[in-house]
Simulated scan of single mutants.
Amino acid sequence: MASPCDPEHAPVGDVGAALMMIDSHLKTVHDGRTAAGPEQRALTEQLAASLGPEGVDDVLDGTCTLIYMFMIWLRKAYESHGKDPVEYVVPSLVATMRRMPRSFPPEVIPTMAGLVLAAATDLSPGLWREQYGYWTKEEMTPLEGTAFLLADHINRLTEDRDFATRLITDALTSMDGN
């Protein structure tokens, strides 16, 4: 029986813009800076303002698509070694979120973990979340943070700080070629 949260029903969104934001944060962290500086925050705010409401929704959908794609890759990687991806990804992710209360207030952690679990079980994170109403302002940073943490997890597994970005870029490029 098909689920209303089946990924084939989900909007893809602006994956390129979402990836650009995640990649920017990954580079910030790997360059030794612990937080986005005023310049990066200003650029992010300028980008959000230039998108308008529909554009912001597209980036939200794109971020959910990234979460889905990252979890599909992680699921395949862990399962190829006889491991359950939920067992290895979710506890680590939740523990990291709990150590970052300014980025992940305790009340959003179950939702962010739910997005990852939805993707791990081959459901659309965005459609799964949509059942509970529109995104709240308080969920914006945690949503981006969840995609960031998954990308970082992939990069650490592969020992390649650009692997997650390249994974998505290659997927987008191959889609453009079809």
Rank of each mutant, 00 (worst) to 15 (best):
R98N: 10
S3G: 08
D160L: 04
D162K: 10
K27S: 13
E54Y: 10
A113R: 00
K76Y: 14
A171K: 00
C5I: 15
S103K: 09
P91A: 06
C5A: 15
F148L: 12
L51V: 08
G62A: 06
N178Q: 11
D6W: 02
L19D: 01
P105C: 04
R166I: 10
P4C: 09
W128G: 07
R166K: 08
K83R: 09
G177D: 13
I72G: 13
A119H: 01
V86F: 06
Q131M: 12
A118E: 01
D6E: 12
K137F: 14
I67A: 00
V108P: 01
V56N: 02
T146D: 03
E130L: 12
F148T: 08
M20P: 01
S92A: 14
T63D: 01
S92H: 12
T96Q: 08
V15M: 05
L115F: 11
V56T: 09
F148Q: 04
T173A: 11
G114Y: 06
E138V: 09
P91W: 09
V116D: 01
L74G: 00
R156E: 13
A35F: 11
N155H: 05
D176I: 13
G62S: 05
G16N: 15
D84W: 04
T63W: 00
G133K: 07
P125D: 03
V89N: 01
P53N: 08
V56S: 03
A77D: 08
T111Q: 10
L74P: 06
R33I: 13
T65M: 02
R75P: 07
A42V: 02
L157W: 11
C5P: 04
G32M: 08
A48Q: 10
A10H: 07
T96I: 06
L47K: 02
A95S: 09
M175T: 15
R75H: 12
T34R: 15
L123S: 10
D6P: 06
G16P: 08
T44E: 14
D84K: 00
R161Y: 14
D57S: 14
T96C: 09
A164F: 06
E138P: 03
A77G: 07
G52E: 07
L127E: 02
Y132V: 06
A118I: 05
A35S: 13
V90F: 01
